[in-house]
Design a protein around this nucleic acid. Sequence first.
DNA 1: GAGTGGTCTAGACCACCTC
DNA 2: AGGTGGTCTAGACCACTCT
Lengths: 228, 228
Amino acid sequence: MISGWEGIREEVLRRIRVRDWPPGETIPTEEELAAEFGVARATVNRALRELAGAGVLERRRKAGTRVALLPVRKATLDIPVIRQEVEARGQVHGFTLLTRTEGAPPVPVASRLGLGPSARAIYLETLHLADGRPFVFETRWLNPAVLPKPLPDFGVVSANEWLVAHVSYETGDIAFTAEAADAREAAVLGVAEGAALFVTERTTWTAEAAITLVRLAHVPGYRLQTMI
Amino acid sequence: MISGWEGIREEVLRRIRVRDWPPGETIPTEEELAAEFGVARATVNRALRELAGAGVLERRRKAGTRVALLPVRKATLDIPVIRQEVEARGQVHGFTLLTRTEGAPPVPVASRLGLGPSARAIYLETLHLADGRPFVFETRWLNPAVLPKPLPDFGVVSANEWLVAHVSYETGDIAFTAEAADAREAAVLGVAEGAALFVTERTTWTAEAAITLVRLAHVPGYRLQTMI
DNA sequence: GAGTGGTCTAGACCACCTC
DNA sequence: AGGTGGTCTAGACCACTCT
């Protein structure tokens, strides 16, 4: 017996899998499905909305709901604070602040932060450790104009955690690349120059201004994983 | 004026950002917020449910809704078919089937596919091109036992697209790593041996059995990007 | 036990889009 | 112009979990 919006979601998925409703086909309207399953239309809507969000269905007003022809699968990644990521592996997290300077950032950084040419920014280099071994080399630019005062000693509190605790919510973008370790990264992470590093780059914004631009170079062997 | 569930979501976010509701704090109940905003409780529920899904709020029955202390940010990645990915860059997609063999897969592959030691599998090597230049080197194991017949000529139809069109829905996992190009990868992609490659590995399953295990080695410079 | 979120209903109106 | 999904309402019952 099918009941509840999750039951309806599973039943719709089953019909797609067994090709009752093959890719590209228009499935019955919400009203028809509601009648068939004996539920309210809102319940059907909830189920179909979830499947559309997952890329399985495509919905347009008036045109109806179709099974996606080339489903763009959606994968959700969890982006935890580095300390949590290390502790989730059962290891002990530590970090060392290697560099802290302040000054005008290089032009590409300034432009990605949306700063004028003479604006000043804080630059931090931090090495994160897992069980005492290098794990992530973090290089970060901070926009001091939008940070709450007073600023902490980033040698004691990692910028990562101070930010999530003191700048409540932000939007931004995130990118992943593979890059060869340069001389500095190789020395800090204790790997050979040219080693393949998994690199995460994030820019985060408040409603108006950029907060921080951070680059995380992970030690070789790092694996970012999720279920589909 | 605040109205609609999206308006309520933005207002809640605003209050979190300006620290009316700092991290860890319990916010008013759905009923109280519904009264304040002059909407039905279901509308508030929709807004708060979205924010909980994004990792901004934590909700528990009886305990109420709190602002997440260490928000585990969720990023949603689109995993398109390679052809779409190439075409989205305004380039022309092409591909060449380099190898097709059939036989018992190596043990690590068999175990990840959940196959017995003597089971046979199809192995494909495909080079995907963007504007005629190497883009992705795909190596794929297929479990023929669960594939619909007849199998196509994978030199004409890419396995990637044939699967999404003929095996309607599947679950699986996906992982991203950075790896140094081995001799074969370097030769096929036309890069130096040891170059840093962005590698995607996917396993996909039907309800019971594994369908395919695929490894995509992207040419250096590849960037996987999303908004947060 | 009781408070809170999770879900469902029956109905309604609206926005968008195809026809 | 009309059909379809998107959203909202007011109310209800239920599931979970904290006390």
